[in-house]
Nucleic acid binder design. Structure first.
Lengths: 247, 247
DNA sequence: CGTTGGGTTGATCGACCTCAATAAAAGTGG
DNA sequence: CCACTTTTATTGAGGTCGATCAACCCAACG
């Protein structure tokens, strides 16, 4: 029996190392991933002045659907669930934010979804108003932002395809392929896929019941495509996973 | 038996009245609806110089998924289906563009979905490059664009909720409520909802089979919530329709 | 007229949901 | 560190909503 590295996040950062301090963009680990990348030096400097480092424990809420949006965030570590709940309690997860992702791209007055930390998470926080003012001064930054929202929209369309027109098997496979792709860009991982979210979160993301997600995972494991390990899965057969996902 | 106005579009505009001519933004019927609204006079003027009036017959394709995007469009009349097809032929409609809507908000190099005219349709066409240059000069326009994409993203999230977490009955009701809302902003109609798309298009939009859509329409008619009329439906009980949609 | 494309309706089937029980893991307090 | 609770995950059995298959209707059109 092989020893699998435990993908579960380490214990919550006891005292947040950079709480309330200004961020240091130069040595930021997600510098090259996020909208911050490709900024001119002066823009980066201006951005850094506005940034405030913050930490959230697992299960803490960054902001809630329908409440006024006061801040925008750049994720530097951890993982966040973005979800909408219907009046009767049914839930749709509209996305998972990972390091390098930006929350509040739309800069709208009101949050259109809730954001909850799945694990201990660190972010760069910006007051929305100050950020908006900076964007007004720097069309270059607005261009980046526009590109990022456009990309998000494209991802949302892809997700609509997955939710609306694919079978349970395909949904779960496509989810794993997509997440693997994202993690690999963040930390280079490619065989082990960390799953900071619960089965229920995945179910609410794919439009399935939690039991179905669990069954599909078990099926993939039985087919030797993946192995379920603490905090995630190990991919044994990437090619087959992609075939099942019908990329 | 009451006489219902036929909502089907009139015969295709034989010779396109404004083909290849510059658009006249001042008397444009969708002026107040689209991204063109709230432009400064000079911006509107610059935009008008780039615009080219065009017409499409029903079933004509404006552009195709995965092909290079050379133009962006502002819809002035008609209706367009935006869809993605999976390799195996399954289709997901990601949206319907109506008068006032803008296609190519993302200004990406490649189309991420196909656009097909559902009825005779007129548009303002802009060469993408020229439009992009204009946007670079006018941050105000970029801001509008950014707001529009953000709104699209929010709509996409709402649609994810509908596709992923609602029943067939709710999907169809929500679809009608949403479309009624959009038409009313365009032409003030509120009892008769024009349905320029086929049942199959609606099915591919909602993640259902065509037969299910047809059955749900029949059911709504049997419940006296709507009446099915040529080219659309007449809403008899808006309140009940909204209840069923679980807005 | 026959043809064609879109729409409706019925009968049947199956993928997924629901309910329920159990197992495993994670947190809690002594 | 170990009992205890709580949360999360898995697995089974049975039911159902929506898909599939098939027949038919209707209007438009050459």
């Amino acid at each position: 029996m092989a020893a699998f590295r435990d993908l579960r996040p380490t214990a919550p950062l006891a005292p947040c190392p950079n709480a309330n301090k200004h961020a240091d963009c130069v040595q930021c680990t997600v510098r090259t991933l996020s909208v911050c990348a490709a900024l001119e030096p002066d823009e980066a400097g201006a951005l850094e002045k506005l940034a405030r480092g913050m930490c959230f424990d697992a299960h803490q809420t960054l902001f809630r659907q329908d409440e006024p949006a006061n801040s925008v965030y750049n994720i530097t570590s951890g993982a966040i669930r973005l979800s909408k709940v219907l009046p009767d309690g049914r839930c749709q997860v509209v996305g998972f934010a990972l390091p390098g992702d930006f929350l509040g791209l739309a800069m709208s007055d009101c949050n259109v979804f809730s954001a909850d930390a799945l694990t201990a998470t660190t972010v760069c926080q910006f007051r929305r108003e100050a950020f908006s003012d900076l964007v007004d001064e720097k069309p270059h930054l607005l261009r980046r932002l526009h590109g990022a929202v456009s990309h998000e929209l494209s991802l949302a369309h892809d997700q609509m395809c997955i939710i609306g027109r694919r079978t349970g098997d395909e949904k779960v496979a496509a989810f794993l392929v997509g997440l693997r792709e994202r993690w690999s860009r963040i930390d280079g991982s490619s065989v082990d896929i960390a799953l900071p979210m619960t089965r229920q979160d995945i179910a609410d993301f794919l439009g399935l019941a939690i039991e179905t997600v669990s069954r599909k995972f078990s099926l993939l494991a039985k087919q030797k495509v993946i192995v379920i390990i603490p905090g995630g899965v190990r991919v044994l057969d990437v090619a087959q996973l992609k075939v099942l996902a019908k990329v």
